[in-house]
C-alpha cells in the first residue's frame, strides 16, 4: 500500500448508492478502465472528466448503499480516484472496498471539515486525513484487528492463498 495519497476533494451528500455509482446497464462490463469511465455517472456525469488521477471522493453518511455489485468500488478505483472518505459506509460496499483494495476512511469531522476542491493528503496505514488547503488534520476510525490484517495482507485474495497453502501442508 502506498504510504500516502494526495488529491483534490469532490464532495457529495448522503446515501450515494450503487445505482448512481455505476448504473445497472454497465454491470455487464468487466474491463476496469472501461467501468472507470462511468464512475458516479448517475450522480455527477461530469465527475470523470473533471477529476484528476489521485482525487478523492468525500461523502456524507451511508456511502455505497444498495446493491452488492463489486463493480461499484471497482469503477471508482478504475476512474483513478485514490480513496473515499465518508461519515459511514454501507456494509457490503465497505467489505468490497477492503477486498479490492480501495482505501476508505470513516470520519464525521473530516467530512465536515473538507470542501470540494480542497487539497487532501491521506495515510491509509494510520487513518490520518490532512486538509492541506485548510491546514487541518483528522483521524479516521480504526479498523478492527482482523480487517487490519486483511488490509495489510493486501486484501482477501492473499489471505485465501495463505489458508489454501496451510491446508495443503
Amino acid at each position: 500500500m502506498e504510504a500516502s495519497l494526495r488529491g483534490r476533494a469532490h464532495k457529495y451528500g448522503k446515501n450515494v448508492d450503487t445505482d448512481v455509482i455505476i448504473p445497472g446497464k454497465y454491470c455487464n462490463i468487466v474491463d476496469i478502465a472501461e467501468l472507470g469511465k462511468h464512475a458516479l455517472e448517475g450522480l455527477d456525469p461530469e465527475y470523470t472528466s473533471r477529476m484528476k488521477p489521485g482525487d478523492i471522493i468525500v461523502a456524507d453518511r451511508n456511502f455505497g448503499c444498495g446493491s452488492s455489485r463489486e463493480v461499484a468500488p471497482i469503477a471508482i478505483k478504475g476512474s483513478g480516484t485514490s480513496a473515499v472518505i465518508a461519515k459511514s459506509f454501507a456494509r457490503i460496499f465497505y467489505r468490497n472496498a477492503l477486498n479490492i483494495g480501495l482505501p476508505i476512511f470513516e470520519s464525521d469531522e473530516a467530512v465536515d471539515g473538507i470542501e470540494s476542491g480542497d487539497e487532501i493528503e491521506l495515510e491509509p496505514a494510520t487513518g490520518v486525513v490532512r486538509n492541506i488547503t485548510k491546514g487541518t488534520q483528522y483521524q479516521a476510525a480504526e479498523f478492527p484487528p482482523f480487517m487490519r490484517s486483511l488490509i495489510d495482507a493486501g486484501g482477501l485474495v492473499p489471505y485465501v492463498e495463505r489458508r489454501l497453502a496451510e491446508a495443503a501442508k
Binding site: R95, L156, V160
Partner: peptide, 20 residues
C-alpha cells in the same frame, strides 16, 4: 447475507466466510 464477488470467490474456494 449478500456480499461482493471477491468474498464470493473466497467462499467458493474455502467454503468459509469471515463475518462480524
Amino acid at each position: 447475507t449478500g456480499m461482493g464477488s471477491t468474498d464470493i470467490a473466497a467462499a467458493f474456494v474455502l467454503g468459509e466466510v469471515w463475518l462480524k
